[in-house]
Design a binder for these strands. Structure first.
Lengths: 205, 205
DNA sequence: ATTGAATGAATGATTATTCATTCAACAGTT
DNA sequence: AACTGTTGAATGAATAATCATTCATTCAAT
């Protein structure tokens, strides 16, 4: 049976099962069932259960990083890039809930125990923010007393916690769009240099 | 042998083992060994392995919430409370690394526990921030267009991501104190109302 | 006839949990 | 103070269940 890409089919099934059950409570047999392949077939495409998670992360998160890089480059000033980052991040979460759940809830936790595996795509993602902060400081838009390495974690953390709420809660009281705007707005005003606050052409809304 | 509180001894051992290995890779027998009790003794004090994690969370996080409530009440204006929250949160992380690791990495990120176990103490902790935001809005210090339910997640998320970096990284490039100050400063400036920005007696440093 | 992708039942390891047994502490009795 | 019975906390070897992984076999395609 020359079929569609099994690797991809298994990854897709794994996203679903990992999101529903969590990595440790996910059964390889259930992923196989979801992907419509035999249990053993998984092992023709992946070394083991860990490898499914790692591959899925490398591949899918890799795409996300590339996509985000393009998104923020649509803006030319650093403060607008922050806003674009927030909106894109949360829009991805809303569109790809299961994947977001695996990224946010499972991977960073699990990666701790996969000693060898340094989470390259994740670090890259964080460093997109860091670059924007540095760029903003060089342009005089962002306060120079702020450490880019701290700010990248603050911005990402704020968005990530919001994502977790969005993905895990069933109620979804706040809209993700509204959250993205409010969070980026607070960071923009909070990080903006004194000078920029006077001159920057800002129509807050 | 009438001994010291075994319940407490087991919890303490569990914190250490969970922090080192993660919940799913932690062995009950290892917790027993660490606590100097027999494997079976654990089951005289806890229903099962899950129950160890849940109890530890309820008890230890409960203390943290109470402590934080006292801390922020040392300040009387909302913006200073935000700062105090940030400093206390990260100072706790630095002082109780293993416990912080279990709180941050194991409990909150484990979708199994987030989904099946409604995390009362955690919600209470978040709502401390929410109350402060509301208080600040009522006093005219904080912009009224910001949703307290979004802000509580943004502030907590920023601090939490910083904590995760701090506990998991071995390098510890940034000091936690510095991080707390920068993060709270950005939030304070970002959330402050136009009016407060003019009148508030602020010595930024 | 040959190949090798795919299968899924069987295997082997791992571990949470149980429970028959031990033993220290104390109370009552002589 | 010595002996005996009772209690229940503590033990840890044995159990039972769960799953990741394997591999002998099948079978579709060429």
């Amino acid at each position: 049976m020359k079929e569609v890409n099994k690797h991809q089919k298994i990854i897709k099934a794994a996203v679903k099962v990992f999101a529903e059950k969590g990595f440790y409570n996910a059964r390889v047999s259930e992923i196989a069932k979801e992907a419509n392949v035999a249990d053993g077939t998984i092992y023709l495409y992946f070394k083991n259960k860990d490898d499914i998670l790692i591959s899925l992360f490398e591949e899918e998160f890799g795409k996300l990083v590339e996509n985000m890089r393009k998104e923020i480059n649509k803006e030319k000033d650093a403060l607008q890039k922050i806003k674009r980052f927030a909106v894109s991040h949360l829009s991805f979460v809303a569109k790809q809930q299961q994947l977001a759940e695996v990224f946010g809830v499972e991977v960073r936790q699990s990666s701790k125990f996969m000693k060898e595996y340094v989470n390259k795509p994740f670090i890259e993602y964080l460093n997109l923010i860091r670059s924007v902060v540095i760029e903003g400081q060089e342009a005089g838009l962002i306060r120079k007393d702020l450490t880019p390495g701290i700010m990248k974690r603050a911005v990402f953390g704020a968005l990530d916690e919001m994502s977790r709420y969005w993905v895990l809660s069933s109620k979804k009281k706040h809209s993700v769009d509204e959250a993205a705007l409010q969070i980026s707005d607070v960071f923009i005003w909070g990080m903006m240099s004194e000078e920029a606050r006077k001159n920057y052409p800002w129509s807050n809304g």
